[in-house]
Design a protein around this nucleic acid. Structure first.
Length: 419
RNA sequence: GUGAAUGUAGCUCAAUUGGUUAGAGCGCUGGACUGUGGAUCCAGAUGUUGGGGGUUCGAGUCCCCUCAUUCACCCCA
């Protein structure tokens, strides 16, 4: 039979078995973030479209071709959130959570939407775990945020993570750098791909990310952003690096690591694992974003982890814990005992056991088959003659052994009990 | 948005150069087993071959369109 409806392209169901693994990962994140004193926040999935255009960048791919935008019935231009930072900052401002002199630390777990062509590690609805720390400009926070990200992966058992690090400077030094890049690339115009010729005008930093061979050859010789950082940005980045070095946190300095979201400033980073060319987490500073959203001129930093990608890696490495709950008891009974059977199921459930009960109450054979299929550890067989003495048959479904026991052994009695 | 591969039973996959009634394993249902599940054996059910159109005496197979999946580019988590 064919279903009448199927899920839309690029989205999928996360089935019970997998959800269980996801929750385990999320619980790990919650527990870790708690120790770093981050507070969980939930923001709406829909936001004003304009907010992302302003923060992520009008020229960014996310806004240009990946954002789900529609008009609601009140004629408002609405977007499904393509990322988590702007909404958190919006909520921070809207709810007056800013306390001068105090850093505000949030984390979120939720789904994001980008209208991409689906492929490995990329869906239209995907899930992120992220943190945002608002109101602190110190390099010490940068270091802590990076350590936290790495620590999360480590706690999940990933021990071959690779940290990529860069500084994209502030708007001031970046415009200097853009100018320098234009000057550098212009003589090589013929060797650049068509896209990059356009990028040369709009956003020369994007050329650094180009995967076309011809461009890559030129890019190797391109000047580094690091040589164009202003004094403030340079010192900041040196401090970040020196503390990471002394903490023995290894990283690859990737000066071509250009974040596709315009709001990034200064420190940016991505984390991947060997043999994967996708990042499983990434982030950076965004010192101008809060002001852009109409708030005070406060710095911010955060990261996001791609849940689907993380789960894929963990599964590949055999690090994904996939185990489903099975019933502790399956209750089998003659149909005349239905009330007592329901009572017993409730009493056992009250004690915290996972209990399944036959809904057919057919013959013993078919009920045992039900029990077997439910994967219950034990079956309780209720028979009228035994129940008169508050006894049942307890059958171990693994060994097949069974014995008559008093219900008191299960720490329940259904004589005189009411549901 | 660009390029490529794939789509057959609930699942994993067969089906000669286009050829009769599209098969197998797993799973499912029933029986062997008249109140004890699993193991074994036996029997049985299940498909508009993703959808639509075309070529042909004849299409799962060839052609076109469409939808979906997968992979790569692009971009990112």
């Amino acid at each position: 039979m064919k279903p009448k409806y199927t899920s839309l392209r690029g989205v999928r169901d996360i089935l019970p078995e997998e959800v269980k693994s996801w929750r385990r990962i999320e619980d790990k994140a919650r527990e870790l973030f708690r120790r770093y004193n981050y507070k969980e926040i939930e923001t709406p999935i829909i936001e004003p479209a304009e907010m992302f255009v302003r923060t992520v960048g009008e020229e960014s791919d996310i806004v240009r071709k990946e954002m789900y935008v529609f008009k609601d019935r009140g004629d408002r231009l609405v977007a499904l959130r393509p990322e988590g930072t702007a909404p958190v900052v919006r909520a921070f401002l809207e709810n007056n959570l800013y306390v001068p002199g105090k850093v505000a630390k949030f984390y979120y777990i939720g789904d994001m939407f980008r209208y991409d062509r689906p492929q490995a590690g990329r869906q239209r609805e995907f899930h992120q775990i992220g943190i945002e720390a608002l109101g602190e400009s110190s390099y010490i926070l940068d270091v802590e945020v990076i350590i936290l990200l790495l620590e999360f992966f480590k706690e999940l058992g990933l021990n071959d993570t690779i940290l990529l690090l860069n500084s994209v400077g502030c708007p001031k030094c970046r415009s200097e750098y853009s100018k320098a890049l234009r000057e550098f690339f212009t003589p090589y115009l013929d060797e650049l791909c068509e896209d990059c010729k356009v990028r040369l005008e709009n956003n020369p930093l994007r050329i650094l990310d180009c995967k076309v061979e011809g461009c890559k050859r030129v890019v190797v010789k391109a000047p580094s952003i690091l040589d164009y950082l202003c004094n403030d940005c340079r010192v900041h980045f040196e401090n970040v690096r020196s503390v990471l070095d002394s903490l023995d946190v290894r990283y690859i300095l990737d000066t071509r690591l250009v974040r596709g979201l315009d709001y990034y400033t200064k420190t940016t980073f991505e984390v991947t694992v060997s043999g994967l060319d996708l990042s499983i987490g990434g982030g950076g500073r965004y010192d101008g974003l809060i002001k852009d959203l109409g708030g005070p001129d406060l710095p911010g930093i955060g990261f996001a982890i791609g849940m689907e990608r993380l789960v894929n890696i963990l599964r590949d490495r055999g690090l994904l814990i996939e185990e489903e709950d099975v019933p502790d008891y399956f209750i089998i009974y003659d149909v005349i005992l239905v009330t007592k059977a329901i009572m017993l199921s409730k009493l056992l459930r009250d004690q915290g056991f996972i209990v399944e009960i036959s809904y057919t109450a057919k013959n013993l054979k078919s009920q045992l088959k039900e029990a077997d299929r439910s994967k219950a550890k034990k079956s309780i067989i209720m028979r009228e003659d035994l129940l008169a003495n508050d006894k049942v048959i307890l059958k171990d479904m693994t060994t097949g052994e069974q014995e008559e026991i008093g219900l008191d052994k299960l720490e329940v009695s259904i004589i005189g009990e009411r549901v």
